[in-house]
Design a protein around this nucleic acid. Structure first.
Lengths: 208, 208
DNA sequence: ATCTATATCCGTATAAATACGGATACAAAA
DNA sequence: TTTTGTATCCGTATTTATACGGATATAGAT
């Protein structure tokens, strides 16, 4: 029996997905969550499952952060990313952070089930399309991955959500000057001169 | 028996949704399609269904265009929009173009089923949250085909290129106050509060 | 053991954006 | 014809962002 947890902020999607998976006799969807934070809360209480299906774009704690945390604590739970974006940067990032598979939201049922069975056995599964995107990306611009520090990425995300420097500072429990410095460094690294260009560039290279 | 067609470009979503709906004895999901064009192709051959669940953002022909076409030919098929965006403009536009309901992708199963049953009887269904967003939007803005005026679009493009208000004013041979007013109006129309959110939203809804 | 990157903090100053007001001219739509 | 939307302009005030300068502590890499 393969025990599965689903985490996606779109309720209709995650319960639909759970419904799909339930059709497999040896699959057991034990819980679903609307964001990474709720999932991690659950995880601290119970690690009795094999696979977590994770969306990338979620409120509070996103899929990539979840991957990170699971990797850091050397969790035995195997994460599978289900994203709507077939972007090389995303794929590479997820793979690097310990994802066992990367599926698109428009893959079909058979591939999803196949991926889950493969991952449950401890093997990784990346379709040829996804693997190709990842390789292409890493060949050309592996630099962009560690362009920004973790903290800078965190700040960038909050900027993109429309928070002001002051609001970000409050939320991260640091002074506004610290955030201002982060902003300045982010602008410098992305070679832009203001917020508008920053957000545009960041979405172009799928940093947000 | 309520006959339903599902149209959404994310296969996992639409088959998951179909699976959910199949649990209702009196629901019959007769077909699913990946975009508006494929759905309309099918529609020309068969109109033997009651409800179509439509995503907005789809390749080729999007949900709003489908609404338009169905309305123009006075189709008896009742369209329900299922979108990830709770945007006032989207909601108002869909309502204006004949949607019987507007649901978010994170509504729950019960509400989806309730909406379908209500719509099947020929009534419209908009949750209080959605109705409120629509009313708020319509109170302040008129629902135009083009959300932004030509001038506003021009200004938005220059903002996204990183020009400051002063630079834009110089380039367009008008005063900075004029550009400031345009900026304020753009923010209002897109329901955002600052440049960061503006650029993010504008790229999300493909305005830039 | 030393160097480097990161994360944190501070001061001073200016530029820019946002939030309130309000107004006029013109063209298009109702 | 009246109303509505667009484009233009203005004042005042506050809040944010950006640009300089410089500093310390720590962890990781060489």
């Amino acid at each position: 029996m393969i025990k599965i947890v689903v985490t996606d902020d779109h309720k209709l999607f995650r319960i639909g997905l759970a419904e799909l998976l339930k059709k497999q006799k040896d699959f057991n969807v034990i819980a679903t969550f609307s964001d990474g934070e709720k999932f991690l809360d659950f995880y601290t209480k119970s690690q009795d499952f094999d696979i977590v299906l994770l969306d990338i774009n979620m409120p509070n704690i996103d899929g990539i952060e979840v991957l990170n945390k699971l990797r850091k604590i050397k969790s035995s739970v195997k994460p599978i990313i289900i994203s709507m974006y077939d972007d090389g940067n995303y794929i590479a990032k997820c793979s690097k952070n310990g994802a066992y598979s990367y599926l698109l939201k428009n893959t079909d049922e058979e591939e999803l089930i196949k991926a889950i069975r493969i991952v449950a056995k401890g093997k990784k599964y990346f379709s040829s399309l996804i693997a190709e995107k990842m390789v292409n990306f890493m060949a050309t611009q592996s630099v962009s991955e560690n362009l920004l520090s973790n903290k800078e990425t965190e700040v960038l995300l909050l900027i993109s959500k429309g928070l002001t420097t002051k609001e970000i500072a409050t939320q991260l429990f640091v002074s506004t000057r610290t955030i201002e410095t982060h902003r300045a460094n982010i602008l410098k690294k992305l070679e832009v001169k203001n917020t508008a260009q920053l957000i545009k560039k960041a979405s172009e290279i799928k940093l947000i």
